[in-house]
């Protein structure tokens, strides 16, 4: 790790002031991605602004058919929350399957969502459930939030405060995890609402995306057989040592079918 200055502000406004004052600065949430990246010198900020003391960014509330989760809420907290388990069990199960126990004890929803890792679980939930993201500057729809591999629409100095998930009538997330890292080789969130079905995929492409063809088929007939023959095109799918684009395309259909089957 290269040297850096460290700040732990006590309020969001102080955090924003510190951000403006420093040059190569980076927010530190749970650090489960950032610190390993800094050790590898893939990331070398000159200042870290640790959000750990910002209690206003933690917590879970359910009201008006939505579950709102503060950005600094731990994966472990989301996975064990009765409020989340009762309102969106698929979200609680997803959080309980991220990384491992110790990663869930440090990692945060805001950190994961802001990072837009192509293989992270949360982006599938944010997009699949049609969440809204509240920042220090605005409210953004999930459909506009993820813009690329490790890229979101967040601007420098803009801080993600919370994610607000609409409660679906039924939903399920299924992933095919890499057996070593537990990152999703392909993960699919299927969520049914009164006005239709949403299907969002993580792990398969450069960033989370929806599958309109599956959404239309499932809105008509919420049955795994309705999407059995739908394959997402292999162009633009990820290719690495773990899986080819063809295999990822196949996995997306299988995971989507399993998610529908489990949600019924």
């Amino acid at each position: 790790m290269y040297p850096f200055d460290y700040f732990r502000p006590d309020s969001v406004s102080e955090a924003l002031d510190l951000y403006r004052a420093a040059e190569e600065r980076q927010w530190l949430a749970g650090g489960m991605t950032l610190l390993p990246a800094m050790k590898l010198r893939l990331s070398a900020p000159s200042a870290l602004i640790d959000l750990a003391a910002l209690e206003e960014m933690r917590g879970i509330e359910v009201d008006n058919g939505c579950a709102e989760i503060g950005a600094m809420t731990l994966h472990d907290t989301v996975s064990r929350s009765n409020l989340v388990r009762e309102s969106i069990p698929a979200l609680s199960a997803l959080a309980g399957g991220i990384g491992d126990s110790q990663v869930r004890n440090r990692g945060t929803i805001g950190g994961s969502v802001s990072n837009s890792d192509p293989a992270a679980d949360y982006p599938a939930a944010v997009l699949g459930l049609g969440a809204t993201i509240r920042t220090t500057e605005r409210t953004v729809a999930a459909d506009d939030f993820f813009t690329g591999m490790f890229e979101t629409c967040l601007r420098p100095g803009e801080l993600l405060l919370s994610v607000r998930f609409p409660v679906p009538t039924r939903a399920c997330y299924m992933k095919f995890p890499n057996p070593a890292s537990r990152y999703a080789i392909a993960g699919v969130m299927v969520a049914s609402f009164d006005d239709g079905v949403r299907v969002a995929v993580t792990g398969a492409g450069p960033f989370a995306f929806r599958v309109a063809e599956m959404e239309n088929a499932l809105t008509t007939d919420f049955d795994p057989r309705a999407i059995a023959d739908i394959r997402i095109p292999v162009q633009n799918l990820n290719e690495d040592m773990h899986a080819s684009p063809e295999y990822r395309s196949h996995l997306v259909t299988v995971m989507a079918q399993r998610a529908v089957d489990a949600a019924i």
């Binding site: 460290y6 732990r8 530190l28 650090g31 489960m32 610190l35 390993p36 870290l48 640790d50 750990a52 472990d76 126990s101 110790q102 990663v103 004890n105 440090r106």
Partner: peptide, 15 residues
Amino acid sequence: GRSVKSCSVLAVAAD
């Protein structure tokens, strides 16, 4: 009270 991987936590964060 939570188990953490101490290779991925900064000492300053344990203040």
